[in-house]
Design a protein around this nucleic acid. Structure first.
Lengths: 314, 314
DNA sequence: CTGTTAGCGCCTTCAT
DNA sequence: ATGAAGGCGCTAACAG
């Protein structure tokens, strides 16, 4: 039966026919679990470990990975570990116990040396959106630094000097974006004002909204804001709209309806689907046995001019 | 080792200690695949089969299911089958081959009697968002009919008579919404005008945008539009905005930024996360052995008034 | 070309 | 309380 089902070995047509008939009559289906148990075989399951899917950024990664995985005959397990690094570690351990063939992960902040155990099991890992410390593995990123630079420079080009930045807690990415922001200041021969560098309490739009309201209520408010994530941008635009202030805003990451807002959102963004595609393909290649040193791909970002970033200071 | 790891049978503390030490030293981890192979055991994998995750509607279902599954010790496989019923059938078959413990599915149009084979394997299924023909299983829905009625009546209440409907191709749901639309007409003692019932070519915002432009370019255009999905609503609002027309729009399904648009979107919506929660919990209960006749839960919908639906005809 | 068998890792008997 | 053994369904290796 195995030989017929898998078509590997030579089988006389008559025999094959007989077997197939029986299969049809009995409604036989091979058991993938038993298949996966055999040595050298895998579960044909790949996993993605990422944040809340209601964030379109993660949803897009998941969607891309689902499609690619299916194309390669794999099913996709979606796991999320919003909370902490511990939850992440537990999730990874569970995935490992399931003998997943590979893992695409958006790592949290902190040390990821626990992933070394994963690697010892020959399970390939690809980091996406952020690298992780303590392990070496393939990683696919956006050019966050350059994005921060582009956004900030764009605001300078429109006459702004007091440019605030809303730093959302995805530490790595927003940290790099902040580096780009600083680089833009240096390139323009300006000093950054520490009071304009605002760490948001969480990643929600509301945190950004509150922070923006606070910024704009100061005696010497910024004339422009660089919002380092999609939700931060939403929150900033909300606050600016509510207070009816002429404040420029540039976001990082594009989002649906950005162009339909009363003041359409100018954003810096990279191709998230492409990033997910590369990461998943890299993973599939590693699963397929492609060896070599860890790769590091950095995808370009570009500015999309829509209006909110072109408001000039009065 | 098994007895120590699972803590079922009685083991002398000294022995347990000895085993645990060895486990620690060797980095032993139980193999879930082998566990799942044993008779009576399951893969502890549940699956959701739904549409494109870049649609926030599906993303929210997936997110909710991920969280609940994890809470119950299950991992979640996300599969999608946008195209056709055949792809859906193949996807289901593959999931079956993996011996998933249960399936939450947003079924496509058409006959689903092939799912009966799934049921023969004692794999519980729960339908979400739409029922399917040819099988009886639990189903959790929104009150689409009532939603269509509420939306349309709301437009009547604001003086409209020529109310168009954009029917997106998710057949079941939008079909029910259309029934509600007709019911509202009957309740108001009005006749529906077949030329105002527009079937969209696909589920994209652009299809709705094109259809709306066409509607509004007619000599006798509608004064209000009921858009039966989130993307249809977006497209309708786009077209209305582009043509700078005073046309009322009510959508079905809420969406992010709906309140921030130049004309904030009035929508009818249900609690999608709650729907997903009920479906997943129902599935987990069935997996846990809860028997009984198929349940059918219909969740209420409500109108959110924001502006686009309160525009009056001139 | 086909029948037979070992063994993947686990849990559940059965026998001590 | 523990050791031993069978068998879940599969495939690769072996022997005809």
């Amino acid at each position: 039966v195995s030989r017929v089902v898998n078509g590997a070995s030579a089988v006389r047509p008559a025999t094959a026919e007989r077997v197939n008939r029986a299969i049809g009559e009995l409604g036989f289906r091979p058991n993938d679990i038993a298949r996966a148990l055999r040595p050298g075989m895998t579960s044909r399951l790949i996993a993605v470990l990422l944040g809340d899917l209601t964030n379109p950024f993660y949803a897009e990664i998941a969607e891309t990975a689902v499609a690619l995985a299916r194309g390669a005959g794999y099913a996709l397990v979606v796991a999320s570990a919003d909370e902490d690094r511990d939850a992440e570690e537990r999730a990874v351990q569970q995935l490992l116990d399931r003998r997943i063939a590979g893992l695409v992960i958006v790592p949290h902040r902190g040390d990821h040396s626990f992933l070394a155990s994963l690697q010892r099991t020959d399970t390939p890992i690809v980091f996406i959106d952020r690298p992780a410390s303590g392990v070496t593995a393939d990683v696919v990123l956006l050019d966050n630094d350059q994005g921060g630079y582009l956004a900030t420079t764009h605001l300078f080009d429109h006459g702004h000097r007091r440019v605030a930045i809303l730093v959302a807690p995805s530490y790595y990415t927003t940290g790099r974006r902040r580096l780009g922001y600083r680089r833009a200041f240096r390139a323009a021969g300006l000093e950054t004002d520490p009071s304009l560098i605002v760490a948001l309490r969480d990643g929600s739009a509301d945190a950004a909204r509150a922070a923006t309201r606070e910024l704009l209520s100061r005696p010497d408010p910024p004339t422009a804001i660089f919002a380092t994530t999609n939700f931060a941008c939403e929150g900033a635009l909300r606050a600016v709209g509510e207070l009816r202030r002429r404040v420029a805003v540039v976001g990082f990451d594009d989002f649906r309806l950005a162009d339909m807002l009363p003041v359409p959102a100018t954003v810096v963004s990279g191709d998230v689907a492409e990033m997910a595609r590369r990461a998943t393909q890299l993973l599939l290649a590693r699963i397929g046995g492609v060896d070599g040193p860890p790769e590091r791909e950095v995808l370009p970002v570009a500015l999309t001019v829509r209006g909110s970033g072109e408001i000039r200071p009065r």
